[in-house]
Nucleic acid binder design. Structure first.
Lengths: 239, 239
DNA sequence: CTCTTTATAGTCCTACTGACTATTAAGGAG
DNA sequence: CTCCTTAATAGTCAGTAGGACTATAAAGAG
C-alpha cells in the first residue's frame, strides 16, 4: 500500500444502507422500501443508495435518511455507523460494498415518499419475512447494537421526543429489549445517573394520560451510563 | 437502489487497514510499516492493502495480517472489524474507502518481513509521532474500542498466550487502560465470573518468577462479562 | 363516588466491589 | 542459612447498587 500504481485493484461500488428504527404503537418499527425490480422484486429492503463522488459515507447516509423519511431537518437525529458488509456475493449484479448505518427516530411520522425511492414505510421489526440481500443480517446487527448500547449509554433518549416522561423512556428499554422492567427501580436508576435526564422546569403532563400526570424530562448532557443499566437475567451479550 | 443501471456511481478503491495491538515489555505496542514513497514518505502507517476482487474485507484483513506479521497460523488470532473510513480527502491520490480492523496478538514475535510490504515493526502505542493518512484516528478508535470491550467482554485473554497467570491477565487491563488495579479484587472478580478463565489441571509456574509461583489458567468458554469489570473512577466512556 | 390506571415514594435485603490486612512461597543478598 | 524482597493468594469489612416489594397520590372512566 505504498504506491498504488504498482498494484492492481478492482473498483467497487460503495453504498450505504440504513437501519432506521423507531417506536410506534409500542412496537419497534423499521423503515423499509419495497423493491420493484429484480433481484428480490417485491421484497422489503433497507433504504440506501450509492455514495456520491464527493461524499463521505456519513454524509451519504444522512442525505438518504432525509430523502427516505421526508423530514425537513434531519440534523438532530441519531445516526451512527454500524459496520461494513463486503461479501463478494452479497449483490448478484455486481460487487457492492455497503457501509451500514443505524438511525434512531423519536416520534416517527409516516414517511412521505419525497425521495427517489419508492415510498418508504414503517413496518414492525419482527414483521415482514425475509428482506432483500443481506438486509436481515444488517437489521439484526443494528438491533443487537442498539440493545447493547442502551445498557451503557444514554442512547434511549434518541427514541424520545425533546420532552418525555420516565414512563416513555422505560418503554424504550422494554420495547428494544423485549423485557419488562420494574418501574420504581427504573426511575431510581435513571434519576441517580447524573446528566442522563433533567427535569423540565415547571411542567407536568395530563392531556392524554389515563393515570396520574407524569413529570417531563429532557435529555441531559451525559452520554455514558456509569454504572450501566444492565438488562435483567439472561446471560450472554456476545461480540 | 432498485436498479443500479439507472444511477450513476463512482467506483471506489476499497482497502483494509489493520490496527494490530499487542503487549510487549509491559507496554501497548502497535504493528506499523514505514512508508517509502509519497505521500507521507518516511512516516509510519498501519499495515493494510487492497481488497481483492474475490475477497471480503474480513478475508483481506486476515490475509494482510498473515503477510505483515509473518505468522504461519493466523487463524486463532482475534480479528474484529472496527469501522469504515470514507472521507473523500483521506488519501490525496485517489478516492479510497478503507475498512479498518483491530487484531490482538498474545506473545508478539518481531515480525519477519515476509510479505509484500516493507518490514513491519512493533512500536509503542504512544511512540511514533503522527502517522500517515488518518491512521492516528483509526489507531485511537481501535484503542478506545479495545479499552471499552475489556470492560464487558472476555477479550483480554486474546492478549495472552494459551496458558497465562492472573497476574498477566491483570497486566493486560492495566496496560490498555493505563491504570492500576487492586490485585486481590481483580482475582476475585475474574474467578467469580464463570467461564472467563479455567484452571490448568495440575500446574504452577516458577521459572522466571521472582515471587511465589502463580497458577496457570486458560481462556474459558464465556465471551461476555456479567456483570462487567468497570475501569476505576473517571467518568465518561463516549460513543 | 368508586374503580382503574399510572406516577411517585420508600423499604428491605442481597450481591458486588473498593479498600484493606495477612499469609504463603519463591529468589537474591549477605 | 537467614533475612529481605517480590509476587501470589486468602480473607475481612463497610459502603452501595440493585432486585423485589409495598404504599401513596392523582388523574380519567364508569
Amino acid at each position: 500500500m505504498q504506491g498504488y500504481d504498482k498494484y492492481a485493484f478492482e473498483p467497487f461500488a460503495v453504498t450505504v444502507d440504513l437501519a432506521v428504527l423507531t417506536i410506534r404503537a409500542g412496537r419497534l418499527q423499521v423503515l423499509l422500501v419495497e423493491r420493484g425490480q429484480e433481484p428480490y422484486a417485491g421484497r422489503w429492503a433497507l433504504p440506501g443508495g450509492f455514495v456520491l463522488p464527493d461524499e463521505s459515507a456519513e454524509t451519504a447516509a444522512r442525505r438518504e435518511l432525509a430523502e427516505e423519511t421526508g423530514l425537513a431537518d434531519v440534523s438532530g437525529l441519531h445516526l451512527e455507523q454500524l459496520r461494513t458488509y463486503s461479501e463478494p456475493d452479497r449483490d448478484p449484479r455486481m460487487r457492492v460494498v455497503s457501509v451500514a448505518y443505524t438511525a434512531l427516530l423519536p416520534d416517527a411520522p409516516e414517511p412521505r415518499g419525497g425521495g427517489d425511492a419508492a415510498s418508504a414505510r414503517w413496518l414492525p421489526y419482527d414483521g415482514p419475512g425475509p428482506l432483500a440481500f443481506d438486509h436481515d443480517r444488517i437489521l439484526a446487527d443494528a438491533h443487537h447494537r442498539v440493545g447493547a448500547k442502551l445498557e451503557y449509554s444514554c442512547l434511549a433518549t434518541a427514541f424520545c421526543p425533546p420532552e418525555f416522561t420516565l414512563g416513555e423512556l422505560q418503554r424504550v428499554y422494554e420495547t428494544v429489549w423485549g423485557t419488562e422492567l420494574d418501574r420504581p427501580n427504573f426511575r431510581r436508576k435513571v434519576l441517580a445517573t447524573s446528566g442522563f435526564v433533567e427535569a423540565v422546569p415547571g411542567a407536568a403532563r395530563l392531556t392524554g394520560g389515563r393515570g396520574k400526570p407524569a413529570a417531563l424530562y429532557r435529555a441531559g448532557p451525559a452520554t455514558a451510563l456509569h454504572p450501566p443499566l444492565l438488562r435483567p437475567s439472561r446471560e450472554g451479550r456476545p461480540s
